[in-house]
């Protein structure tokens, strides 16, 4: 009912709109449409590259990128902190790695019992592996005597591993053992 009333109220407007001449598509509508559909694939590719390289769109993006990079460098040079990736690693004086124990020079500060014990444990492994010469054992002996502590070996301090060894290897191990025992006796006597 309301719709009918509204229809009567705006009858002139409705009639005017209905009387408007129909607007039709142009005669070449289908031809153009077919052409556009056929070009669809290539247009899509082109539009991507166009979008990427159209100067009007590229300029603001490029300007933004360049200013961001410049800003980054300016901020970076003002930063007093050193780049951790560029500085040389700090040398740790409390750890000594050597193939030859005779080359190790012990400074007075390094003669504390704890650090000496650590060193000896590490060097001991080297000695077992490489069968030090008698001259090295003398150096070793003097190092032990200067430290002034009772030396003992336990499995915790060693990188302990059980291996099957040949007869020759067993002999060489027993030789090193006997050398070590000699050194130990000498240190006790001194």
């Amino acid at each position: 009912m309301d719709n009918k009333d509204e229809g009567l109220k705006y009858k002139d407007v409705i009639d005017s709109l209905k009387s408007l001449q129909k607007v039709n598509a142009p005669a070449n509508f289908e031809t153009n449409l077919t052409r556009r559909i056929n070009l669809l694939g290539s247009e899509q590719e082109e539009s991507f590259w166009k979008r990427l390289f159209i100067p009007s769109k590229l300029i603001p993006a490029a300007a933004l990128a360049v200013s961001a990079v410049i800003l980054l460098f300016v901020l970076n040079t003002n930063n007093s902190d050193e780049d951790p990736l560029l500085i040389n690693p700090r040398v740790r004086t409390d750890i000594i790695s050597t193939d030859d124990i005779s080359r190790v020079e012990l400074s007075p500060g390094q003669n504390s019992a704890g650090s000496q014990k650590e060193k000896l444990k590490g060097s001991n492994q080297d000695m077992l592996g490489k069968q030090k010469s008698n001259s090295n054992s003398e150096q070793w002996n003097s190092a032990l005597s200067s430290s002034g502590f009772e030396y003992s070996i336990d499995k915790k301090g060693l990188n302990f591993r059980q291996v099957n060894i040949s007869k020759e290897e067993r002999e060489s191990v027993s030789r090193v053992k006997s050398q070590f025992l000699k050194i130990k006796e000498n240190s006790k006597n001194n």
């Binding site: 005017s16 709109l17 408007l20 001449q21 039709n24 142009p26 005669a27």
Partner: peptide
């Protein structure tokens, strides 16, 4: 536009009312 069909945006005497609407 190469088209002979009705062009509402080209004003003719008969199309004046259409144009106003």
């Amino acid at each position: 536009i190469p088209d002979e069909s009705y062009r509402p945006d080209v004003i003719t005497d008969s199309g004046i009312k259409d144009k106003i609407i």
